[in-house]
Simulated scan of single mutants.
Amino acid sequence: MNVLLVYAHPEPRSLNGSLKDFTIKRLQAAGHAVQVSDLYAMNWKAPLDADDSLGRADNSRFDPSLDSKRAFEEGLQSADIAREQEKLLWADTLLLQFPLWWFSMPAILKGWVERVYAYGFAYGVGEHSDARWGDRYGEGTLAGKRAMLIVSAGGWESHYGPRGINGPMDDLLFPIHHGILYYPGFDVLPPFVIYRTGRIDEARFARICEELGQRLDQLQQTAPIAFRPQNAGAYRIPELTLHPDVATDQQGFAAHLM
């Protein structure tokens, strides 16, 4: 299996740095091929801007979507974007590893998504009609691949529980799981979350590695989160709302789970 690990933490000696090293060794020991995009070490440029689309007229108005579409179609993307897209196409499984900062991923990782997910690559693909609304949410360029988040959080697990002050972890991660990963076609595995990261001694670190190792060993067998595919009949098109007889007792994020 080919695994791409996209890693976003600025300190190699951190908990995340140690878990990154563990993940690479565990996967390689199992015979998997691993590529790593260490965004801070790469000095990854986070902002999406006009410099990402080569060959633009200097005085032309920058349109993030249309410029991205033209650059992708004409082979005029900046080299760093094209390299990351090649890694994604190579990978059978994508791992995104990051600390939960201000209830989301670090800005550098969000910038990786915004720049690498070009128009025509991760969105804007497929037929748009009264029967289909593009190849997305279960379909798309990255369909058939798997993805999993490895997330560290400083708060207690109870803080992210069903009645916790921070909100349920599944809800906080929904925009990443459903939007960033499921949208372009990934089968999204349940996340691996480490809580209360400021209270980790050697014994707890060993337990975390054991649990993470088991998840890594089962990447190919773990059942993905059961999101509803967009074009399989559950949604009205083009409104993209659930049919009245689907998930009648649910609303919000939960309604999009089967």
Rank of each mutant, 00 (worst) to 15 (best):
M1L: 12
V3M: 12
L5E: 03
A8Y: 11
P10Q: 09
E11A: 14
E11M: 12
S14E: 05
L15R: 05
N16A: 13
S18T: 13
L19I: 12
A29R: 13
Q35P: 01
Q35S: 10
V36S: 01
V36T: 10
V36G: 02
A41M: 10
W44D: 04
A46D: 10
P47T: 06
A50T: 05
G55D: 04
D58Q: 14
D63V: 04
R70T: 15
A71S: 12
G75H: 06
Q77N: 13
S78W: 01
S78K: 04
S78D: 13
Q85H: 03
L89M: 06
A91H: 01
T93G: 03
P99T: 07
L100T: 04
L100R: 03
F103H: 02
F103L: 09
M105I: 03
L109P: 03
L109G: 04
K110G: 05
E114S: 10
R115D: 04
Y117S: 00
F121Y: 06
V125F: 02
D130K: 09
Y137M: 08
T141M: 03
T141Y: 03
T141E: 10
A143K: 11
G144F: 12
K145R: 15
R146H: 05
S152C: 05
G161V: 05
R163L: 04
N166D: 02
N166P: 00
G167F: 07
P168R: 12
D170Q: 10
D171W: 07
L172I: 14
H177G: 15
G179W: 07
G185F: 02
G185C: 05
G185W: 06
P190C: 07
V193G: 03
R196S: 03
R199E: 08
R207P: 00
R207V: 04
R207N: 09
C209R: 15
E210P: 00
E211S: 14
Q214Y: 03
L216A: 07
Q220I: 10
A223S: 14
P224L: 09
A226P: 13
A226Q: 15
F227Q: 06
Q230D: 00
A232Q: 14
A234D: 15
R236E: 12
E239A: 10
T241L: 10
L242T: 13
V246C: 13
Q250M: 14
F253C: 14
L257W: 13
M258A: 15
M258F: 15
